[in-house]
Design a protein around this nucleic acid. Structure first.
Ligand SMILES: NC(=O)c1ccc[n+]([C@@H]2O[C@H](COP(=O)([O-])OP(=O)(O)OC[C@H]3O[C@@H](n4cnc5c(N)ncnc54)[C@H](O)[C@@H]3O)[C@@H](O)[C@H]2O)c1
Ligand SMILES: NC(=O)c1ccc[n+]([C@@H]2O[C@H](COP(=O)([O-])OP(=O)(O)OC[C@H]3O[C@@H](n4cnc5c(N)ncnc54)[C@H](O)[C@@H]3O)[C@@H](O)[C@H]2O)c1
Lengths: 240, 240
DNA sequence: TTTTAGATGTGAATATTATCACATAAATGG
DNA sequence: CCATTTATGTGATAATATTCACATCTAAAA
C-alpha cells in the first residue's frame, strides 16, 4: 500500500489495486466506528446495519456507508454488516496484526501512570522502555526498564522503534523531541503543552489536557450542546 | 453572551450585540493560535502579523484573519496584532478570568498523576477533590482530598462543580458518568476507552490514548505526512 | 422459484469550509 | 501633508465534505 500527498487535505492511496481519494475525516470516523462496534459486540450484537452504527456513533447512516465505501469496506447488500467481519477489516487497516514497539520519554507522574497502562499491550503496542535523565529513576524498579538518554539510540535500533510518547516537562520537550527525531523516530504522542518543531516526515499528535478541559468549560459555559454526537471536537485536530 | 444551536454544524451566538455564525473549526483553531502565541511570547515577540502566526500554526494567513474575523478579534490595519492584546482577547473568550472547580473520578494510576498536575491551577482550573470507591485511597494522603462516592453530591454543590474528569476503569465509567450527570455535571473529560451515553446537554470530551497511538502508527506506516501542520488529526473530532 | 421488502453503494446535489482577491485603513517616508 | 507601502478584513470564489436519492442487489417470504 502506497500513500502520497495529493494536496493539503486529500490523501491518495491504494486499496487493492484501485487508487482512491480518502478524506481525512473518514479515517477519523473509522476509529469512532470501531469503538462503537466493540461496544455493540460486548452487548452481544453480531450484525449491524448502517443505521445501527450511525445511531451509536451519532452520524447519519449515509455517512457510515460513504466512509466504508472510501475504505472499500463492504457488507451484504441487504443483510447489513457482520460485526466481526467489520472489526477484522478495521483492525487490518490499522495494522493491528503487527506488533509495534514504543518508547516512553520521562518517568515522572504521567510517565509512571502510562508505564502501568495495560491496554497498550492488549492492542499489540509494547512500551519496551522508558528514558529519564534522573539517575534515581534509572535505578528504581518499574514495570518497564528505565534507561538514561545515552542508551536511546541502542534501544530504538534494537527494537525497531518508530513511535515515542513524550512525557517530559515542557521545557525539555523540544530537546527530547530533537533527540528522538535524530534517532529515527517517525511518530510522537506529545503530552507536553508545547508545539514541537519536527521535520515534515515526522507525525506529531499533541494531547493537551488543559486545552481540552478549557474547551469543555467553554462548551458548557456557552451551552453548546453535542446533540447527536458522541464526542465534541478534540482540539488540534484537522488544522489547515 | 447567549448561544443556541442553529443546525448541526453551525452555532449562532452574540458577540457584542451582533449575531454571528461561528464555524466550529474556527473555534478549534483559536486554541491552536493561542498556543502559538504563548510560544512566540516566550521567545520575546511582542507583535505578530497574520503570516507570522500562520507560519507558526501551519495554516494560511487568510485563515488566521478569517478566524479572527469570526470572533471579532481585530488588529491594526497595517501594524498587525499586539501579542498581549490578542492573548487577552482569547483568554476572555475562554473564560480564563473566572475560576473553575473540577472534580476527578478515580484515584488510580492516571488519577494520581492528574492530581499532581500543577498546570491546571496555573490556568484557573482547580481540581477540588477526587472520588474513589477504594476505602484505602480515601484514607491515604494525596495532594487533593479523596472522598467516597457518598460525598459526591455535597462537594459538587458546595464548589459549584460543572466539569469532571473520569479516570476510573472502563467497566465503571458509564455508572460513574450517570452519577455525575445526576448530580448536575455538564462537561466531562473521559479517559476510559468507552463511549459514554449522556443527555444532550452534557458535553463529553474523550481522550483515548490507544486510539491516538494507533492513529500515529497508521500515519507513520502509511507515510502520511503532516506537512505544514503542527498536529495531525486528533480522533473523535468534528464528527457529523 | 418468483416476488417483495429492505439495505447497500455511490454518483449527483447540497452544504460547509477554506482560499482568493481586493477594497480599505494606517503607518512610513519624502 | 500627500504618496506609497503594507497588512488587515471580508465578500466572492473555489475546494471539500455531507447528504440525498436511487439503482442495485440479496435475504426472506410467498
Ligand atoms: N501529570 C499529569 O497528569 C500530566 C497531565 C497532562 C500533561 N502532562 C505533561 O506531561 C509532562 C510530564 O508531566 P509530569 O507530571 O509527569 O512531570 P514530572 O516532572 O513528574 O516528570 C517529568 C520526568 O521527565 C524527566 N525528564 C526531565 N527532563 C528530561 C530530559 N531532558 N530527558 C529525559 N527525561 C527528562 C524528569 O526526570 C521526570 O522524571 C509535562 O510536560 C506535563 O505538562 C502531565
Ligand atoms: N494508566 C494510564 O496511564 C491510563 C492512560 C489512558 C487511559 N487510562 C484509562 O483511565 C482509567 C483509569 O486508569 P488507571 O490506570 O488509573 O486505572 P486504576 O485501576 O489504576 O485506577 C482506577 C481507580 O478507579 C477507582 N474506581 C473503580 N471503580 C470506581 C467507581 N465506581 N467509582 C469511583 N472510583 C472507582 C479504583 O478504586 C481505582 O483507584 C481507565 O479507564 C484506563 O483505561 C489510563
Amino acid at each position: 500500500m502506497y500513500i502520497c500527498r495529493v494536496n493539503l487535505t486529500y490523501y491518495c492511496f491504494k486499496v487493492k489495486t484501485v487508487t482512491k481519494n480518502v478524506l481525512k475525516n473518514s479515517l477519523k470516523r473509522i476509529f469512532l466506528y470501531r469503538a462503537c462496534l466493540y461496544r455493540l459486540k460486548m452487548m452481544g450484537v453480531e450484525k449491524v446495519f448502517s443505521y445501527t452504527l450511525a445511531e451509536e456513533a451519532g452520524v447519519t447512516p449515509d455517512q457510515v456507508r460513504k466512509d466504508f465505501s472510501e475504505f472499500n469496506i463492504r457488507g451484504n447488500k441487504r443483510g447489513g454488516y457482520v460485526l466481526s467481519d467489520l472489526l477484522e477489516k478495521m483492525e487490518a487497516l490499522f495494522y493491528r496484526n503487527k506488533e509495534h514497539n514504543i518508547i516512553l520519554m520521562g518517568m515522572g507522574n504521567l510517565g509512571l501512570a502510562l508505564s502501568k497502562y495495560s491496554r497498550f499491550v492488549q492492542r499489540n503496542m509494547n512500551v519496551v522502555a522508558a528514558f529519564d535523565i534522573d539517575p534515581y529513576k534509572q535505578k528504581a524498579r518499574y514495570d518497564i526498564p528505565v534507561y538514561g538518554m545515552d542508551r536511546l539510540k541502542e534501544i530504538i535500533h534494537r527494537f525497531k522503534v518508530k513511535v515515542a510518547i513524550i512525557a517530559v516537562p515542557e521545557i525539555s520537550a523540544q530537546q527530547v523531541c530533537d533527540e528522538l527525531v535524530r534517532n529515527g523516530i517517525k511518530g510522537i504522542i506529545n503530552f507536553a503543552p508545547v508545539l514541537l518543531k519536527v521535520p515534515e516526515d515526522v507525525v506529531i499528535n499533541n494531547i493537551n489536557l488543559c486545552d481540552e478541559l478549557e474547551s469543555v468549560i467553554y462548551y458548557v459555559h456557552n451551552q453548546i450542546r453535542n446533540e447527536g454526537l458522541k464526542n465534541i471536537e478534540l482540539l488540534y485536530g484537522d488544522m489547515k
